[in-house]
């Protein structure tokens, strides 16, 4: 009788520990992360690097931003960013405008950041199309043609 009670208690403690000690990050989904937009580069050749210009200062190249399909981060403390694209076909710039959104999820998960109302500003690309966004099931996607 006592042995079963002991085993049951032990299992309950281990189960509770597993649930609580594992943290909640895996259930929160995308909280406390810098928002990104997706880039599909279809203008010929490849992108070799992308870097942003903030307050007139060139930031380092964005990690992983190369090839023909990649993500670029968005500055949540501002409402516009200018990116410089270095491609095998030459250099280009693209400016975007947006409204930053912060949403407090919960005590455990903290904040989730996103953007709304993404617009294109000045760009040296001949064609760029925005799709996706908060009203669809996918992130914002800019297709460069």
């Amino acid at each position: 009788m006592f042995k079963k009670l002991y085993q049951f208690t032990l299992v309950a403690i281990l189960l509770a520990f597993t649930i609580f000690a594992s943290g909640c990050d895996e259930f929160c989904g995308g909280t406390s992360e810098e928002p990104v937009i997706e880039i599909a580069y279809q203008a010929g050749g490849n992108v070799t690097s992308v870097y942003a210009v903030k307050d007139g200062v060139e930031l380092p190249p964005i990690e992983g931003a190369s090839g023909t399909f990649f993500n670029i981060p968005v500055d949540i403390n501002g409402s516009s960013v200018t990116y410089n694209f270095v491609t095998t076909q030459g250099n280009h710039t693209m400016q975007i405008f947006y409204d930053p959104v912060s949403e407090l999820q919960s005590f455990e998960c903290g904040f989730r950041f996103s953007i709304e109302n993404l617009r294109l500003g000045s760009t040296t690309f001949t064609g760029a199309i925005i799709s996706g966004g908060p009203n669809s099931f996918i992130n914002y996607l800019i297709t460069i043609q």
Partner: peptide, 10 residues
């Protein structure tokens, strides 16, 4: 505090 932010923390 973000993990590895490019532009900085919010």
């Amino acid at each position: 505090v973000f993990e590895n932010p490019y532009f900085g923390n919010a």
